[in-house]
Amino acid sequence: MNRTDRTHALRLLVAWAVLSVIGVFIALQVHLPPGDQSTQSVDETSLLDLMLVISTPVFIGVVLFILYSAFAFRQTGAVLEDGPPNHGNFRLQVAWVAITAVIVLLLAVIGISGLSNSAAATTFASSQATLGTVGSAGTASGHRLQVQVIGQQWWFTYRYPDFGGVESAHLMLPVDTNIEFHVTSTDVLHSFWAYQLGVKADANPGVDNITYVSTVNTGSFEVRCAELCGIWHGHMADPNGQVVSQADFATWIAQVQKDDVGISLPPYSPIYFPHPPVKGS
């Protein structure tokens, strides 16, 4: 490294450090969705925020480098000159690979631990007495509130096997509860996306796709379909999902059980197959 190298590097480094501090400071103010309605959405928000914070200095560094070289290293003379014949620096390459590898490992570890957290939400919250006893159509793991999400062209319906498999067109969930979604479909692929809850799971015909959520805050959330499912895919949205207090939920589910009319589906079953197979209609 000669002196010119050092001058350029120092300038870049200082500018990068200053801008990164500012950038990271700004990035820390940003809070990305999906919010804090469930522990999962809290996890996702913090992961997205963290990624924003990590990628800010990377972004600033690269952009700074591009701009700096575009201005500092350009030639404008009439005759083309050559730069220094520099063929590479092995130690720098090793260092670079090591740094990217460390960042990658870090992200992977965070991601994997986040993954196991969301899947390991096994303990049942305070609401056992209210919820667990009413019905028992659910599976053996009766410790979580079971909700079956059934995608169909072009809406979702929700069945509550713990309450005799009653069905609702809107998703209503009690707060402070561990919930186990069983997502399936009666026709094509859909994807159940409860935005503020931080849940997304594909609905496949013939498949019981399980995902978990633990509600922590009341409020409304939006359910959308996130997998192309035909012409009204864009309209497959319901802004009226609700996380409510456990008492409200008990009232509501009792009401639903009372006037359950069986909306559109065959009897409760963990999975549905489309029938008959349709071809080129």
Binding site: Q40, E44, L48, M51, A108, I110, G111, S191, G198
Partner: peptide, 11 residues
């Protein structure tokens, strides 16, 4: 690429 963040971003 991280599963938890992909939950929100996928699709």
């Amino acid at each position: 690429s991280d599963v938890p963040s992909d939950v929100t971003l996928h699709g």
